[in-house]
Write a protein that binds this DNA or RNA. Structure first.
Lengths: 193, 193
DNA sequence: GTCTATAGGTAGATAGAC
DNA sequence: GTCTATCTACCTATAGAC
């Protein structure tokens, strides 16, 4: 049963706002983005937009949450290795400079304590690293990976490299094949003892 | 011959301003930092500060340049391998959260085209990666490293990991030994092929 | 070199009409 | 749901006095 009447309109507009907001935040970062600008792009006044999200912060956090939800809804879930999922995520990112820019800008912002995104990213990294480390452990138990590998170290390095490559890729577009690089790294790491 | 009279005072104040500015920019990022705030910390009015650096942008770029100059002035130059220098830089960073925060925030900012730091960081990465790749090549020629390694790939991954680890370290302080991690990576990479 | 004062902006958020 | 109008709170940069 689809929502109807006033609800449908509200939900659709909300979605439209989130799309526009993601794009503008990605392009300019949090501080340089004004609610007015996002409003303009969705054919609303600033006050009109703030009817749907009562503060700029709320809108911003919603954008971050939706970005994550979408990643998880996509085919990533079908890959049992979270290492595979990471690689596929990197591949997909190579086609979405906007999202990458959003991610880089926001994760760096979150490193500032005052940032609204601090909690979001701190938690995000904790579970991401944990998931990958856990995955490495499972494959060590089944004998697919050498027992000598350090699961936390591997997870940390893979994620770190993925993040750092994004920055290089944004600054010098076309100079880096992120997918190839991260696969090289994985091959090197899994052969370590 | 040292500068004297009014010069000495000017230079000293300039330095004091740069120190304060580095700290505040590191803590809050470029946009969230006001010239007034930096002025307050140095006992000046906003206009008084802008006597030394005529715009906020100029002050900011000066902070970035000085950070780099200091790195290079330190003992890093004495290490012939630029890979070694990278590792030592990572070690030193582990004791300077402020500088790391500045670097992470500013490099991410620079990924936005509109950023004043865009040119600075794009160029910085170009020579940094180039220097390391070149270094790998030299050691391949002398037989110290296997000929099969991809110099650009190695350089890119080392720098990417260093950057990404900084982010993890800032978000979850104490959870990552950056130096140890980057050495693990280097060991893994040099054994590839 | 440093100040006060101010010009000229832009921001987020609110009030109240429709 | 959406608008216009407005408020308050900053901001950078400049002018001109000391």
């Amino acid at each position: 049963m689809a929502a109807r009447g006033p609800y449908a309109k509200g939900v659709a507009k909300r979605d439209e706002i989130l799309d526009a907001a993601m794009e503008v935040f990605a392009q300019n970062g949090y501080d340089r983005t004004s609610v007015r600008e996002i409003a303009r792009q969705t054919g609303l006044s600033q006050a009109g937009l703030l009817h749907h999200f009562s503060t700029k912060e709320e809108l911003f956090l919603e954008v971050l949450r939706r970005r994550d939800d979408r990643s998880l809804d996509s085919d990533e879930r079908s890959h049992k290795h979270s290492v595979d999922r990471l690689m596929r995520a990197v591949d997909r990112n190579s086609e979405e400079p906007g999202l990458v820019r959003l991610f880089v800008a926001m994760s760096a912002e979150s490193a500032q304590d005052a940032s609204v995104a601090h909690g979001f990213f701190a938690e995000r990294y904790r579970w991401l690293l944990d998931e990958i480390a856990q995955d490495v452990r499972v494959h060590q138990a089944s004998g697919e990976l050498p027992a000598g590998l350090d699961p936390e170290g591997i997870a940390s390095l893979l994620v770190a490299a993925a993040d750092g490559l994004q920055l290089q890729w944004l600054l010098n577009p076309g100079s880096v094949d992120m997918g190839a690089r991260i696969r090289t790294l994985w091959e090197a790491l899994r052969k370590t003892t």
